[in-house]
Amino acid sequence: MTVLSPRPRLVVLDGYTTNPGDLSWEPLEALGELTVHARTPPEQVAERIAGAAVVLTNKTRLDASALASAPRLRGIAVLATGHDVVDGAAARRLGIPVCNVPEYGTASVAQAVFALLLELANHTGGLAAAVRQGRWSACPDFCFWDEPLLELAGLRFGVIGHGRIGAAVAGIARAFGMEVLSQRRTPQPGDVDLDTLLAASDVVSLHCPLTPLTEGLINADRLARMKPGALLINTGRGALVEEAALAGALARGHLGGAGLDVLSVEPPAADHPLLAAPRCLITPHVAWASRAARGRLIAATAANVATLLAGSPINVVNPG
């Protein structure tokens, strides 16, 4: 008589944003007994991961106490590139590898950078709304605008963090005729230091990971070093920027505007200072979320899970 081994238990803690229903979980269902929770509050994390072989999370935190309550856990698969939601050191002590997806949304995030930048430069959304409100029909002239329109060609575009996404963004900036300045952790020929980049750039775009060294990287002092009228774009992590300092720089008119897809706390409190800041565009952390990118994310995560189950994990971010 053949006794079949039970299928490994796979648990997704916060599947809704990755797949709100327009994609299939089939690549993961093929690997084990899959349970998908749309969302998991902190107090239910330990209960839901108990007995799991692999836990999948996007933004639900896995701290040391939660990990200690899951003795059967063979791996953690982060449904993202950033992995700061997992206590990687605690997982390493417990012998639990943590895998991320290094590349899935490069094209989508780079596109979002320029969606924000072009709105700051051309005010397309605001002007289209004004036309719908009847302002063009009532205009005595053949055209109108409320704020200056900015031509990107010839401006300097500063990229802080020149990995896959930063490199893609730099390529698009060059296609617009912009001069690109780069700053990265390991300098390459032609790179500039951070202070030089901030002082010289008309647009600064953040693409570095969130680490103890980069948290609060763009603070009041560094905002003051930026060119008057410069634009700041952040599609990386909200905590790269000291948000109260940015709100102040916008209120004083030192910066020409900011385009943000991320904030330090998501969703933000209703009284967050940047929600009322002038010339500040904020989108709800959706740069990564095109259907194409999310499909690649699920496929790549399934590959990570397969290697975790096989005992030969790839894309490990907390190596022992």
Rank of each mutant, 00 (worst) to 15 (best):
A90V: 13
R132W: 02
L117W: 00
R74W: 07
G88M: 00
V85M: 15
S108R: 03
R135F: 06
E119P: 00
G126W: 00
R72L: 14
D87W: 10
A138E: 11
L117T: 01
G105W: 02
A70Q: 09
D87F: 11
D141V: 12
A64C: 14
E151A: 14
C143M: 14
N100M: 10
V109L: 03
A68P: 06
A138P: 06
L127V: 05
R135N: 02
F114Y: 05
A115Y: 00
N100P: 08
T124Y: 14
V109Y: 04
S65I: 10
C143H: 14
R74N: 08
A90Q: 10
G125H: 10
A66F: 06
Q111W: 05
T124G: 11
V85F: 11
L67Q: 05
P148V: 02
P148S: 07
I76D: 02
D87N: 12
I76R: 06
L127S: 01
P71H: 02
I96K: 02
A89P: 10
V131P: 02
A80H: 10
A129D: 08
E151S: 10
F142D: 09
L127A: 05
A112S: 13
D141N: 11
E103V: 10
P97A: 14
R93K: 12
S69T: 15
S65V: 12
G105N: 12
A70R: 07
I76M: 04
G134M: 04
A90H: 10
A89Q: 15
E103M: 04
G125K: 01
W136R: 01
V113K: 00
A66L: 05
L79V: 07
T124E: 14
V78Q: 05
G95R: 13
T81A: 09
P71W: 07
H83V: 12
N100W: 09
I96Y: 01
Q133H: 09
A90E: 07
E119V: 06
S137H: 03
L79Y: 07
Q133P: 03
T106N: 10
D87V: 13
C139L: 12
A121Y: 04
A129G: 06
L120T: 08
G126K: 05
L62N: 12
R74Y: 04
L79D: 03
T124A: 15
E147A: 06
L118V: 02
R61C: 02
Q133F: 05
V98Y: 03
R92W: 11
F114D: 00
Q111L: 05
D146E: 15
V98M: 08
A115I: 04
R93N: 06
N100K: 07
R92E: 15
A115N: 01
T60D: 04
D141Q: 15
E151Q: 13
L117H: 01
L120W: 09
V131R: 00
W136D: 01
R135D: 02
L152S: 03
P102E: 11
A112R: 11
L67V: 09
G82Q: 14
A66P: 06
C139I: 11
A121K: 10
L118Y: 01
F142G: 04
D63F: 08
L67T: 04
A130V: 02
F114M: 09
